[in-house]
Design a protein around this nucleic acid. Structure first.
Length: 342
DNA sequence: GAGGGTCAAGTCCGT
DNA sequence: ACGGACTTGACCCTC
């Protein structure tokens, strides 16, 4: 079993220079537009080098963690403007491609050597079931960008190799499950074999995704489900999770966890699960409860994750990233020390 | 260096 | 009709 953090690292001591070395940077299209060819090349090249270095540090860090903590979501910001006319030309340059290929191959080797589980998560603009043709085109392009990264890392062959995946949400309600399948059909075999779909809070809840279990693996987000369902905590024995497990076809499932912000729940006991109806009655808006906490401050939620670790790995969506993963890992360590697994 | 405006993209919700 | 939230808040310009 594994838990991991998403995209970004925080130094425990607040070392700003260290944070900079370990994290990707990006630019804006507006800034690129203001530059001439040479300026844009220099900028994108510098960002590429920074980001390759940052990814290597993150992978090295995770590789040095205990086996429990060997999962990592890679930032989609690795190569800004990759699929956009303002940046596309840069990444087509053979020298640039060679540089990326060399570096990512070596990083991927390190990940495999240390049994890391890697993932990517395109942003909310990637809508594979959009009813808008231009939006759909963008989504396909965006997913192929992510697939290129996985290929370079050495995860381009087979069904979610090493548990690697590219995770998106169900998309728009208007598009529905049918458009989702149609969108998938436009992807390369690599992108299709890496794709997973995650329940969200508004458009596609867990129940809405179940029909897709035959098509691709489902990533369950406990917090999204809690919000969408009006306060239900999924239990490991929930029959729907049997469908989810089967959707992974032999690969260990990935799930997501997060908790509502600690500053919204000041004084809430750390040992009991936040109760959504009670909080709502107190005037706290579900919309605000969606926001993620800094740390894994709630022991009851941590216990729930521990229970679900029987069948799934977890990505921790918390603002303090690796520090929140450390919280959860310590919690799990304490529990297992008291009651060792059979 | 700090502060404030800006930043590619889609969709849904609350007002 | 429009701003805000989602999310990975960070970049970029001006002072």
């Amino acid at each position: 079993m594994r838990i991991g953090f998403c995209c970004k690292m925080m130094s425990p001591t607040g070392d700003a220079a260290e944070d900079k070395r370990c994290n990707v940077t990006t630019t804006t299209l507006a800034a690129l537009r203001r530059l001439d060819r040479d300026g844009a090349r220099q900028k994108l090249s510098a960002i590429m080098e920074t980001n390759l270095g940052a990814l290597r540090r993150q992978v090295d860090y995770v590789a040095g963690q205990p086996p429990l903590e060997r999962a990592l979501r890679i930032s989609s910001d690795m190569f800004p403007a990759y699929g956009h006319p303002l940046g596309e030309w840069f990444y087509k340059d053979p020298g640039v491609r060679r540089r990326i290929a060399d570096e990512l191959a070596s990083i991927g080797d390190c990940a495999r050597r240390h049994d890391l589980r890697l993932s990517l998560h395109p942003g909310q603009f990637c809508v594979i079931n959009s009813v808008e043709p231009a939006t759909l085109d963008n989504a396909v392009k965006e997913l192929e960008y992510h697939a290129d990264i996985m290929r370079w890392l050495g995860y381009g062959e087979g069904w979610h190799p090493g548990g690697a995946h590219i995770n998106i949400h169900g998309g728009s309600r208007a598009g529905g499950v049918q458009n989702f399948r149609a969108g998938m059909a436009r992807l390369s075999a690599t992108a299709r074999s890496l794709l997973t779909v995650e329940n969200d809070e508004v458009s596609f809840g867990l129940d809405d995704l179940l029909p897709l279990a035959e098509d691709l693996p489902i990533v369950v987000d406990l917090h999204h489900h809690w919000i969408k369902s009006g306060g239900e905590y999924l239990q490991p024995e929930d029959p729907r999770l049997e469908v989810v497990r089967a959707s992974w076809r032999g690969v260990r499932p990935m799930a997501h966890v997060s908790v509502s912000r600690e500053d919204l729940l000041v004084g809430h006991p750390a040992d009991s699960l936040p109760d959504l109806p009670t909080l709502a009655a107190r005037g706290i808006k579900p919309r605000d409860l969606r926001a993620h906490s800094d740390r894994m401050w709630n022991n009851a939620v941590n216990d729930l994750v521990l229970a679900h670790l029987s069948w799934a790995d977890f990505e921790v969506e918390a603002k303090h990233k690796n520090l929140a993963v450390d919280d959860l890992a310590r919690h799990i360590g304490r529990r297992l020390a008291v009651a060792p697994a059979a």
